[in-house]
Design a protein around this nucleic acid. Structure first.
Lengths: 337, 337
DNA sequence: GTGAAAGCGCTAACAC
DNA sequence: GTGTTAGCGCTTTCAC
């Protein structure tokens, strides 16, 4: 456990002052070339690295971003994190990660804990509970304390900050349109996130597409799943009450695949009898049988853009207006449609 | 963007010295109760929080753990991260995350970058490339610099540090045994990780189980998949060359589910004709049709234990011996066996 | 060309 | 009971 070498120690060993050593390491024009060489040689030999905490204290910059995400087991969030990490790293930033587990308290605590000079700013996606309870005082506090926030995917209109979103409305609209073009006559929507803003947008996009189609006769057909134990029962009831359903748009892939499974058990042929579309380009959608057509949110891009947006703000001293950037979604067509 | 309040400012506003304020905030017995009250009232009003960088510089502790994982899109690693985060947070530690993407260089860079006083120690699982290339100089350097490391899952015997592992040998042995007890006569193993130590252990466990069974007649049957494009072709060749295969143990779930799919296409009934076992308790194993029997590594426990182990070492000044803790695996029996 | 000194925000030993 | 001082490791201004 050899302790870390400091400027002071280098200076002592070289019979120089600390400031000279400091300058020499930066190739300052003030310092004699020979001295520079001596200093740098020793620094290299001793594997000197400037202490990050000291630098932070001095510069009042941590070069660290706080990332708060609702659920790391969710492929979408993992992939966004991957994008954030890439972009942050290549700009010299570290990432401190906190998981809200979709709980308001954990989210607020994380924000509060990191608002002590641990980070320069935040990238986050709002916890489900926070959005349901419509809390945002914790976000306000952080921004008032001078910590810029970039929200992605699950954002709040109540908070003034940079945002990266997906056009959930349009994505749902397009997915439903796709089913309509296949001449589907009874299209159901399954939602596990109707309590989230993005869930509402997806529902609206679905409704709008149906309404806009003059040849579509059926009413909207929305099935809400409120907790993990309900998937099977709700989706079974869908099929039991609507034998003639021939299109399903799900706002998440677990529902979509459960629908696939139940439809199959009931003897439906997919995609011949029923077309199914899910949401999120994750592994389960690629491995299901049949593989699932999905709306891809381009999670990697969301992450990269979020990081870039925050870093831009951190590095631009002139406070610019808050922006909301919309990332394109893609319909990835596979075997289920 | 109101800048953060400091002790100095509190002191000025209260006409007290900085040290008095500092002590008052800590309820020091030296300080007059009234003063304590005044100070704490103002601190609360101004929402004072001690600057973390200053504390770190002073105490030479960052209360931060560096976590380096190979692939965040892998459910196992995400879940371990969840465990680490929980345990670390409840002990007042933050987590800085770096993703090696299974590359040696990225792993070494991350280690190097964080070894500048950014963290107190590391929790990591070795990148595939690092293990294949048998590099470990970067780990040595970090430990020599005084940064304790806890390795989990993919560990190296060449490095002296704390470790959390799964008994991959035994897990594979037991899984194979399970298939033998079902009276399976031709059991194949599919491996995507034969270049990793854990992959070799799993292969050995499989072999040992077969050898130890006096009634088992067939030879070992090992199919190696070396890259993502080969899944279908390798597994198809398995079935084409061995029509009588009736048991499959896969060292990962993508192979297992691909096997499920291909077997199904070829008209095999699962589990009647063929039993399939995967590895890792992820979503795809629960949602596949039929749902997949798997070896669960108890990832959450691995994460929690790793964090606890590192924190123990950080807080125990007396350098104790390095330990390796083995986390129990479970065979989770579902429909595919 | 080199060094002394101040200061980032904080703690703690030591005055008074 | 309160204040002064030194110091954590570093940068930077200013003096020599």
């Amino acid at each position: 456990m050899s302790h870390k070498i400091t400027l002071k120690e280098l200076a002592a060993e070289l019979n120089l002052s600390i400031s000279t050593v400091s300058k020499a390491l930066k190739n300052s024009y003030e310092i004699n070339e020979k001295t520079i060489a001596r200093v740098q040689a020793l620094a290299k030999k001793r594997n000197y690295r400037p202490n990050r905490m000291a630098l932070s204290l001095k510069s009042n910059k941590t070069m660290t971003i706080g990332v708060i995400i609702p659920n790391i087991l969710n492929y979408f969030f993992s992939k966004v994190l991957l994008g954030i990490e890439e972009e942050a790293n290549s700009n010299g930033y570290h990432i401190i990660i906190c998981l809200s587990n979709n709980q308001y308290q954990k989210e607020a605590d994380s924000l509060q804990l990191l608002s002590d000079g641990s980070v320069d700013g935040f990238i986050l996606s709002i916890a489900r509970e926070t959005q349901v309870m419509q809390r945002n005082n914790h976000f306000k506090k952080a921004t008032e304390d001078g910590y810029p926030i970039v929200m992605f995917d699950r954002v709040s209109e109540k908070i003034e900050c940079d945002k990266i979103v997906v056009d959930d409305y349009k994505a749902a609209y397009n997915a439903t349109k796709f089913l309509l073009k296949q001449d589907r006559k009874k299209i159901a929507l399954i939602s596990t996130i109707n309590d989230l803003n993005i869930g509402k947008l997806r529902i609206n996009g679905y409704k709008k597409a149906l309404e806009g189609d003059p040849t579509y006769k059926n009413k909207e057909l929305i099935f809400k799943i409120n907790n993990k134990t309900e998937y099977d029962s709700v989706i079974t009831s869908l099929f039991d009450n609507h034998h003639d359903v021939d299109g399903i748009f799900a706002t998440d892939n677990v529902s979509a695949i459960t629908a696939l499974k139940i439809a199959n058990n009931k003897g439906f042929n997919i995609p011949k009898d029923i077309s199914v579309i899910g949401f999120s380009d994750d592994k389960i959608s690629r491995l299901s049988v049949p593989s699932l057509t999905i709306v891809s949110q381009n999670a990697l891009e969301i992450g990269k853009n979020a990081a870039r947006m925050l870093i831009d703000r951190l590095q631009n001293n002139s406070p610019s207006e808050f922006k909301t950037k919309v990332i394109q979604t893609d319909l990835v067509v596979r075997e289920s449609t």
